[in-house]
Amino acid sequence: MPTQLTPAEVQHVAMLARLKLTPAEVADFASQLGRMLDYFQVLNEVDTEDVEPMSYAVEVRNVFREDVVQPSLPRAEALMNAPKTDGQCFLVPQILDGG
């Protein structure tokens, strides 16, 4: 029996990811994500005791830039792709506690 996520689990993850899903998407993802999770079980065959996780593709270390100010973008360019501005700031609906 393949794993199915419950609609509540799907909705919880969708909320974490801030995605509004249609009921059809909730149903699809419940089974598709479940199938993927089943597929991932294959990894449990692998003994990873004492294996260092590989977060980076290359072993680059200690990359710094010097503390030098570079020119910023003109405000007009900073705001030019924003859906809503007042010419000075990005505008968003009134923020309530808890975001």
Partner: peptide
């Protein structure tokens, strides 16, 4: 995390 470890392997 499991994925990252198998990635190393």
């Amino acid at each position: 995390l499991k994925g990252l470890k198998v990635r190393r392997l």
